[in-house]
Design a protein around this nucleic acid. Structure first.
Lengths: 201, 201
DNA sequence: AGGTGCTTCCATCAAGCGTTGGAGACTTTG
DNA sequence: CAAAGTCTCCAACGCTTGATGGAAGCACCT
């Protein structure tokens, strides 16, 4: 039950954000009384924290999976494959993108432990992309590039409902266009700008 | 007074989003009673619509200004200048980025007339970037590229408070890094991928 | 059968929300 | 000077919110 609540809370929080979500909405989605929800998770903020923690872990383990998959391949292949897999994964779990962006852009009320772990993750992505040689000491300019990369994907996932109407395409075409656009932008940038580092491998 | 309310409402809505903002917060910021606010603007949703409309017009007129400035210049210069000016402008008016992203990513409750005007704007950007030759008939793949471009900027503006801590830099360095990163990613992409169109000018 | 611990629901609370009515104050008009 | 109009605030409304206390159900052990 505790897990079921967490799973449904993810979706609701992801759609409406922290303020836009009410505990009653979550309880209704699960099909239980609100007091049952409070029994298992305590206050709303605690549940939210747990949800954020949860999606963060999911995202991180997915990134590890991708890293193993692309290891050893040439740079532009690595990037294309990673983009492809991550895009598919996030389209299947849009709450991850939604909540990540919510966390970035909406006013934070209480600083959590999570914020320390995000840079670490960005460093890991930079490493598996071959942008840096040492996982431990990642320069800020590499981190901010990975941030831009990740956010571009998140944007397209979270904005789907809006952008789909705007571009007047269906889901299938939208997914295809997103992948093409991401490749169009990212491959030249990271392919070219990184050649100096690449040759030293 | 009506204008003063609009100006302050922009900031509050931009920081906390629609649900995160209360009419009392806005009134307090302006320094008036809530009923005065209601006297001038009616219900919260109407004020919010007005705010969104307002920032949209601001953004559009700024884009027109940029278009005039870069007209006739070679492509990579156009892009660099446009990025530079828009980044500075949005750092000065972060509510524009905040509200734009909020509108894209948070659940919409009532479809507005605005949504029809956004694709038109994206088409105009694509035109002034030299991506398309005809302002009237802009293909979807050009629009989605402009969307990606604009969103990348918005992301860095809206996420500043979060990313600044994450990267452990101050405002000045952050702005510098953002500009470098945007140029790093966008210039190769649009410089290379667009050469075929460029030559036909 | 009775007790114990865990889980669920009903009823309810105080606080905060969006919103409104009405009474004053100040300016403009006759 | 009075009347009309414009603006502002105080007080309050009904409703939704996050949150809780207590009773009922259920499985398990003795």
């Amino acid at each position: 039950m505790k897990g079921r609540i967490l799973r449904d809370a993810r979706k609701i929080f992801g759609e409406y954000g922290f303020h836009g979500t009410t505990t009653r909405m979550i309880a209704q989605k699960v099909g239980i009384d609100i007091s049952t929800l409070y029994y298992h998770w305590g206050e709303k903020g605690d549940l939210y924290e747990a949800v954020v923690q949860d999606i963060f872990e999911d995202l991180r383990s997915k990134l590890v999976e991708v890293e193993k998959l692309i290891h050893g391949k040439p740079l532009s292949d690595r990037l294309k494959i990673a983009l492809d897999i991550m895009t598919d994964y996030l389209f299947d779990n849009p709450e991850i993108s939604n909540l990540t962006l919510f966390r970035y852009f909406a006013k934070t009320r209480s600083e959590s432990v999570l914020e320390v772990k995000v840079p670490e993750t960005m460093g890991n992505i930079a490493y598996s992309m071959g942008l840096v040689k040492d996982r431990k000491s990642v320069p800020v300019d590499a981190k901010i590039k990975m941030l831009a990369l990740m956010n571009s994907i998140h944007n397209f996932i979270s904005g789907e409902s809006f952008f789909k109407i705007l571009l007047d395409v269906d889901h299938e075409d939208y997914v295809k266009m997103v992948k093409e656009t991401l490749a169009f932008i990212m491959v030249p940038a990271f392919g070219q700008g990184m050649k100096d580092i690449k040759t030293s491998e």
